[in-house]
Structure formats: structure tokens, C-alpha cells
Simulated assay, not measured.
Amino acid sequence: MLKLNVKNETSRLKTLVLGTAKNNGPVPAPEETYDPKSLEHILAGTYPKEEDMVREIEGLAEVFRKYDVEIFRPEIIPDYNQIFARDIAFVIDDFFIKSNILPDREKELKAIQYVMDKIAPEKVITPPEEVHVEGGDVMLWNDHIFVGTYKGEDYPDQITARTNMHGVQFIRELFPDKEVREFDLVKSKTEARDNALHLDCCFQPVGRDKGIIYEGGFYRKEDYEYLVKLFGKENLFHITRDEMYYMFSNVFSIDTDVVVSERNFKRLNNWLRENGFVVEEVAYAEISKQEGLFRCSTMPLIRE
């Protein structure tokens, strides 16, 4: 049996689910996309090739093996995108919470059924139908849970809106002893540079007291200011609109002092090293064309 334990984003990682790019299927038609960045690359003819994405994700797996992390992979569904494991479920404390994801993606959960079978059944939570909540929007910071959401009245028409206020309320009720704070995110169906698909596209803690943040991803200035006050401005690495587009905030922590980052993120990687982090640089630029990076393709199950 797996004894789940995830209380923050940065404690020493022991066990996770890592997505797979194998048998990824053909390039989607423009109308099949869920985000503006994938659409942009489909229209430009630069959508990533399967062999490049497989190479990138296996490079990430290699880093996890170096740190003795136990890795589970989804069972392969032919011609199907299974890269972004974070979307389909996530762990808070010792609960495994399924996301009510887009109906087309329910197969992805079935592909990790063998992992769920290793978890005590009472610890596996299926939210009610009206609750939408995806792992990329749920950020743990010890006694805090940060949740990205979208409050616009056009929520049903916004394919980039992934977590609703029912989702926020559901997390609040499940974890009454934690400080649950929601953040209204800026969304765009057409311009990837103005679309915070999930909270981890514009914010993520690193280490014990630091974080990466993009002010323009927050719809309300007071949400951004709340995080600045909580972490301290000097502890936050501020990214630009272009850096947000390339997903600088979507790194992944293996430990409080070890961060996996894209090898092209020079400005960020220098800052991390200056602040005492070991930076494991991995090529992930092709996968990022689908508006997802390291955090999106990982689902931590156990941290120390």
C-alpha cells in the first residue's frame, strides 16, 4: 500500500506519477485544442513531434532516478496524450483527489488505476459533479492551500478555465484546518501570453520561503500583493510576460534545495543558483508548446 503524504511543493520527493509521451497520437485539429499555445503551434506547423517529447520526458525520468525517486507511469492508451499527469488528480496530505476533468480525458485516470489500487479506498476522493478542480490550480504550502480559479460569468465557455468556485469550496470543506486562498486568474482563449491556464503558470513556491511569480497572471492586484506580503518581495523571482509564456514558473522541486528547470531559463536558473539551489537543467521546450511544463507532467504521491 502507498502511504500518501504531500504537504507542500518542495519537501524531499519519494514517489510520483510521471506522464508519458509514448503513442501520443496525431497532431490535433485546431478545433480539438484546449489552450491557445497548442493552437498557435498547430497553425504554425511547429507542434511537437512524439519522438522529441518522449526524449524530453525520459530525460526528466533520468533525473528522478538519480535522486532515487520511485516512478509510476500511466498504462499506454494508443493515440492519446497522457503527458500532463497533474491535470487528472492530485494529493493533499494523505488524500488522493480525482479532478473532474474534461470528459474526453477520463481515460487518463483509468490508465493509473493500478496506482490507485495501492491506496486505501477511503483516501481516494471523487468530487461531486459540479466541482471542477485541476492539480495545476492547487498549490500546497504547509498550512496554506493556494487555489487558482476563474470567476467570470463566461466560465462555461472558457476552455482555459479549469477550476471553479465549487472546486475552491470543496477543498475548503475537505481541509477545514488549512488556510485556503483562491486566486482569480487571467484567461485568454486566443493569446497564450495572456493566459494563466493554471495557478502554476504564474506562481510557484521553491525552497522553504521563496517563489516565482508573474504579476500579470492575477486578475486582482490584491491577490498578487497577498503573496508578496506572505513571501516577502525579496524572496520572489518576478518573471516577465514572455517568461510566463515560456512557463518559467512551472519548474518542479525534488527537494527544498533541488529544482528541475528548463535548460533555456538562464535568468531564472542563475537566480536559483545564487540562492543556493542545485538546478537540474532538463530540455523540455517541445513539451512546453502544449502549455505545460515540469509541474504539469508530474503528480507527487509521497514527499518526506
Rank of each mutant, 00 (worst) to 15 (best):
K233M: 11
H144D: 12
V228I: 05
E130P: 07
K289R: 08
T10Q: 02
D209C: 04
V282E: 04
F146K: 05
E62S: 15
H132F: 09
L197H: 12
F203Y: 14
L4C: 03
E51P: 03
A21P: 02
A21G: 00
R267C: 02
Y214G: 09
G207Y: 02
F90E: 04
K110I: 12
I83N: 07
E225W: 11
V278Q: 14
F84R: 13
Y150S: 07
I101R: 03
R162D: 12
Y284L: 14
D157C: 01
N8C: 09
R105A: 00
E281P: 05
L236F: 08
D87A: 02
K151Y: 07
A285T: 15
V131A: 05
S99N: 02
R172I: 00
L18W: 04
W141S: 10
V206A: 12
M247Y: 10
S297P: 01
F294Q: 06
P26W: 03
M116A: 11
V251K: 04
I83P: 03
P36V: 11
S38N: 00
D154F: 03
E122I: 01
L39F: 12
G217V: 03
N81M: 15
E291A: 15
L13E: 06
K229L: 03
T160Y: 05
E173A: 08
V131M: 03
I88G: 01
P103Y: 14
K151Q: 14
H144R: 11
M165N: 12
F294M: 14
Q82H: 04
I83M: 13
P48I: 09
V258L: 09
G45P: 10
R193W: 05
R208L: 07
D137L: 01
E75I: 06
P156Y: 06
Y219W: 10
G216K: 13
F248I: 12
E191L: 11
V27L: 00
M53E: 10
R105H: 13
N164V: 08
A61H: 13
Q82R: 09
N5H: 13
P30A: 07
D200W: 04
I213G: 13
T20H: 02
E56R: 02
E234H: 06
L102W: 15
A283T: 03
Y80V: 00
C296P: 13
S188A: 11
L293H: 14
K266Y: 10
Y67T: 10
K189G: 13
I213L: 14
E106A: 13
L230W: 09
L18I: 01
L4I: 06
T163M: 14
L174A: 02
P128I: 13
I88N: 03
V69N: 00
E234R: 02
S11I: 11
F64T: 05
G45F: 05
K210G: 02
V168K: 00
E286W: 06
E281R: 07
I92M: 09
V6A: 00
